[in-house]
Simulated assay, not measured.
Amino acid sequence: MISYCTNVHPAEDVDGIVAQLERYALPVRERLGADRLGVGLWLSAPVARGLADDATARKRFRAELDARGLAVYTLNAFPYGGFHDEVVKQAVYRPTWTSKERAAYTIDCVTVLADLLAADASYGSISTLPLAWREPWTEHDDRRAAEAFDQVVQAIRSTGERPIRLAVEPEPGCVLDTVADALGWLAGRVDPEYVGLCLDTCHLAVSFADPAETLAAIAKSGVDVVKVQASAALHVEKPAEAREALAAFAEPRYLHQVRELGADGVVHQSDDLPEAWADLPGEGPWRVHFHMPLHQEPAAPLSTTTDVLSAVAAGLPGEPHVEVETYTWSVLPDAGDLVGGIAAELEWARDNLVREGVSA
């Protein structure tokens, strides 16, 4: 089942989460005419801690989901908290995988997901950050992170019959910047039965990686694609002609990494859109880490990378969880109605990805 990620909603307590599911997820399901709707839950660390400590609270929360026809296959445990603060930027990568807090939060999410997991799910997935922002990072940090993953795996092994799997999500600018970085780091450090890859197709597109070559490398690596975040980046073929159009996307809350593909194949990088004009040559195409609604094509000279998403869907091995993750609705220029937007994205995903082999 294709889910939509609830990190688009700002609530950071259980009552608030339930209220926002009532306000948004329920009418989305009804608009789609579906008996059930997949929701990829984002739970802040305090919420996850409270639920993990209280089995009765988990049972009540599960009942609230069931009553609204909402099914949970996956959690997004990338943001620890404060994901809708006025300024998030690099704070989203903290705490890192070197910290006790990150491991404890992820273990709490494991406990919660084990009780929320949909009855027809063969496994549950939890996506997580690519260790940390790229600096500072040392070999000692590598060891500490690997030990933290091992702690989480030990917790997963005690959860019951259906496995829960971590999905590490490479992102531009981080320690694991690309899929190749993630494959290299995971190999030999983690148990592949429980830890695999979260393939975010916006991030993949921003890196200018070839989808077919990426999928072939994953297949050879022995690392599973546990989860796909169905997302699209902003594409600009001629940046010099798009200054005014891009200015509308240079907003202060989230980090919008930019990559430029040079004529020689070299990928140049900038850590945020407002800095890109000074950092990049501006001669080749740009891709911007700004999650764009899947069903919307922005006005020229801008476009999106849904072609990368479609190419990934066509070649995906196995049946990973698929989560539509457009968390940027609150900062989009002219975003419009959120219920209508989420429903339209899910319709687009159903019409364009299911036929490529993704499970509905």
Rank of each mutant, 00 (worst) to 15 (best):
I2A: 15
C5W: 01
E12M: 10
E12T: 04
G33D: 12
G38D: 05
V39L: 08
V39H: 05
L41K: 11
R49C: 01
R58G: 09
L65S: 07
A67H: 07
A67P: 12
A67C: 09
D85N: 10
Y93N: 09
R102M: 04
R102Y: 03
T128R: 05
E135K: 14
W137A: 02
R144W: 01
R144Y: 00
A146N: 00
E147Q: 01
A148T: 00
R157L: 09
R157S: 06
P163L: 02
D181S: 05
A182D: 02
L183I: 07
R189G: 02
P192K: 12
G196K: 03
L204Q: 15
V223E: 00
A230P: 14
S231R: 15
A233T: 08
H235R: 13
A242M: 04
A248S: 14
R253L: 00
H256A: 09
H268G: 00
W277D: 06
L280F: 03
G282I: 15
H291S: 13
P298D: 15
S303I: 14
G318T: 15
T326W: 03
Y327E: 07
V331A: 09
G336Y: 01
D337E: 10
V339S: 12
I342P: 06
A343R: 11
E347C: 11
R350H: 07
R355S: 05
V358I: 13
